[in-house]
Simulated assay, not measured.
Amino acid sequence: MSLHISDAVIWNEMGDGVSLYHVETGEFRSLNDTAAKIWVLLSDDGDPEAVKTKLSLLYGAGNAAIGARIRADVDAFLDTMVERGMLVETVQA
């Protein structure tokens, strides 16, 4: 599975986060630093597994429990963004 930013989303990276605007629903969201990092990493290649791995290595400090928590938190964030139509799933053959 790959994820990409919906064509209906306008986003802007700022010094303290990312702002998102869904032009079809009118929803506006401001992402904090951590969520913004997830968003930007995902925008690079669309691979959720790569994002989880990078963040686990960056913040998990080799601790398996912390790494698992990071992966679960990233999954929860991405699921929410898909539910809100900010991200779109692409199934690769």
Rank of each mutant, 00 (worst) to 15 (best):
residue 45 D to V: 06
residue 77 F to A: 12
residue 93 A to V: 11
residue 47 D to W: 05
residue 16 D to N: 14
residue 22 H to Q: 13
residue 85 G to V: 04
residue 40 V to G: 04
residue 43 S to Y: 03
residue 52 K to T: 01
residue 72 A to R: 15
residue 17 G to T: 02
residue 66 I to D: 11
residue 19 S to V: 11
residue 57 L to D: 15
residue 83 E to C: 06
residue 1 M to G: 07
residue 26 G to C: 07
residue 93 A to Q: 12
residue 54 K to P: 02
residue 87 L to R: 00
residue 24 E to S: 09
residue 68 A to I: 00
residue 7 D to F: 05
residue 58 L to D: 08
residue 42 L to D: 04
residue 84 R to N: 12
residue 22 H to W: 08
residue 20 L to P: 00
residue 48 P to C: 01
residue 35 A to N: 14
residue 37 K to P: 02
residue 31 L to E: 05
residue 68 A to L: 01
residue 17 G to E: 01
residue 11 W to K: 06
residue 19 S to K: 14
residue 58 L to M: 12
residue 10 I to N: 13
residue 30 S to Q: 14
residue 65 A to F: 09
residue 57 L to M: 13
residue 76 A to Y: 07
residue 2 S to F: 12
residue 26 G to A: 07
residue 12 N to K: 14
residue 54 K to M: 09
residue 87 L to Y: 02
residue 70 I to Q: 00
residue 71 R to T: 15
residue 4 H to I: 07
residue 38 I to M: 13
residue 51 V to P: 04
residue 49 E to H: 12
residue 54 K to G: 01
residue 58 L to Y: 05
residue 83 E to H: 10
residue 36 A to K: 03
residue 89 E to Q: 14
residue 10 I to S: 11
residue 63 N to T: 06
residue 50 A to L: 09
residue 42 L to Q: 05
residue 90 T to F: 03
residue 16 D to I: 09
residue 67 G to E: 11
residue 62 G to Q: 08
residue 41 L to T: 04
residue 71 R to E: 15
residue 13 E to D: 13
residue 82 V to Q: 00
residue 39 W to D: 01
residue 32 N to F: 04
residue 62 G to E: 07
residue 33 D to V: 08
residue 79 D to H: 09
residue 22 H to M: 12
residue 72 A to V: 05
residue 28 F to S: 08
residue 43 S to R: 12
residue 58 L to K: 12
residue 4 H to F: 09
residue 23 V to P: 01
residue 24 E to C: 01
residue 13 E to V: 14
residue 39 W to F: 01
residue 4 H to P: 02
residue 81 M to Y: 02
residue 93 A to Y: 07
residue 86 M to R: 01
residue 50 A to T: 14
residue 48 P to R: 00
residue 19 S to T: 10
residue 89 E to K: 15
residue 5 I to C: 00
residue 77 F to Q: 13
residue 23 V to Y: 12
residue 75 D to T: 08
residue 42 L to P: 10
residue 39 W to C: 00
residue 46 G to C: 11
residue 11 W to A: 08
residue 72 A to S: 15
